[in-house]
Amino acid sequence: MAGRSRLMIYDFEEGHAFPVLETEREISAPNWTPDGTALLVNGEGSLYWVDLDAPELLEIDTGLCLRLNNDHGITPDGETLLFSDHTFGEGAVIWRMALGEEEADPQRVTAKSPSWFHGVSPDGTTICYTAVREGLFGIYTAALDGTGESCVIEGAHHYDGPDFSADGEWLWFNSDRTGASELWRVRRDGSGLERMTDDALVNWFPHPSPDGEKVVYLAYPEGTVGHPADMHVSLRLWRAETGQTETLVEITGGQGTINVPSWSPDGVAFAYVDHV
């Protein structure tokens, strides 16, 4: 990690970003809570709440799951926490845990590994995630309890970073299926595949806004392989009205900056992590 981690919020009404919390610890991948009062971040294998009124890292007890990566989220009703963990030596597995219950234990969601959680449908019934099955990367969906696992799209290339559109009908994701990583979307039944960006940048982790009008994503310099940390990257915006893209901020970041959905519930802002 380069220097200190900063938890940031980009406010579209203000037209700029401002810091929420700065720490010597390596934090990453913020989510907003459904009530808009706090952010959830990963920090060195654990999860933390950050209250926006009094920002500090407050650790969440995740039971025997002790090696969480930066793939996590909260259901729209605020009742369930989902995360990926690789404590038990078989690769990443998705778990869920009831929030607001002092003695709640995590319950395993995905029977197979590796599975990396990425998002929850707007109606709160379905998760989307990246998985490797029989040697192939793919985008998958399942019910909150892991039943009904379904492959939306897979192939010999890399598929990652799925997130639901605001209407729940589409899954946005990134893939290098035509060369460098670009943004794509596909219907939940696997039909209607569309390429959404086509430029020299290496584009990852698209996150549609709650109003369906915008998508924020991470862009690496041309030629970048994978999604490394501590690079000069940009956070960019795709507008549904025009299909055009623009740069919002340029930062030091990458892996952990916006891996998971990070829009505020009202769609006015999104959170991210950079390093200084």
Rank of each mutant, 00 (worst) to 15 (best):
P122T: 09
E44R: 12
C151M: 10
P162L: 05
L81N: 10
L52P: 08
V93M: 05
S121Y: 02
P114F: 04
T75Q: 08
P106I: 07
D53Y: 07
G78N: 04
W95Y: 15
F137M: 01
F83Y: 14
W170A: 09
V93A: 10
L171R: 06
F117Q: 04
G161A: 13
F164S: 10
L144K: 05
R133I: 12
P76N: 03
H158T: 10
D105E: 12
E103L: 08
G161H: 14
D167E: 14
A131F: 04
L66F: 05
G161E: 12
N42V: 01
T75F: 00
G135K: 01
V109Y: 00
A104I: 06
G161L: 03
Y129E: 06
N70Y: 11
T87C: 06
A156V: 12
W170K: 15
G63I: 04
W172M: 03
N69K: 10
G43I: 06
R96N: 11
I153L: 15
I94R: 01
T87Y: 00
R67E: 15
A156D: 13
R67D: 09
D123S: 04
D105C: 08
A156Y: 07
F173A: 12
E44D: 15
A142S: 15
T75D: 07
F117Y: 14
S113Y: 01
D61I: 05
G43S: 15
T126K: 03
A54C: 08
G43K: 05
I74M: 08
P122L: 12
G73R: 01
A131N: 00
